[in-house]
Amino acid sequence: MEVLTVPVLYILLFFMILGSIVALEARDLLSTVIAIGAVGYGLSIIYLILNAPDIAIVQVVVEVLVLVILIRATVTRDDTTYGQPRDVFALASALVFAGLFLGFSYYVFQWMRPFGSPLMTVAKDYLAQGLEATGAANYVMAVLLDFRAYDTLGEATVIFTSIIGAYVILRSIGRKRRESAFRDDAHS
């Protein structure tokens, strides 16, 4: 089983790269959404084989929600941008900077820890003391809800803000316009 981890990882990463290209180049917006869904579920399997089951579950749930939101945005709306001339300057600069970035990262990776032997200076203390300090058998949850609980509080704030923002944007009539409509009714 452990022998298979790295080949399966490569296959899934290539699958994700192909799925991303299909998602960005498809003509139909519904095909785009379905391709990005395939990429997300491939990522979920990657998390599963990298011994991160909590992340895999969260990724599946989030992927379902993202698909529902994106289909709500794209269904019954057609893409009018296809077939128009491309922006050649944007394409050329994107390709040039992607090449530069990949070359630079290839150069920099030699100073990083190799894949499969992580640097665990902080995590060693958490793993050694986590059970006595927090009483949680799942160490991801021990880090999330106990050692780094302020991060989780900030995350809840961000979620709350984004949901309020989406509600305000999607409200069909603004408050100001509704008040002025009432005022006009009172005058007439």
Binding site: L50, N51, A52, D54, I55, V58, Q59, V62, P118, M120, V122, A123, Y126, L127, Y139, V140, M141, A142, V143, L144, R148, D151, T152, E155, V158, I159
Partner: peptide
């Protein structure tokens, strides 16, 4: 065990 710290932080990042 694998490193739990990036897993906890990525859990936050996915939901955000």
């Amino acid at each position: 065990s694998v490193d739990p710290v990036p897993q906890a932080l990525i859990l936050t990042a996915i939901v955000i």
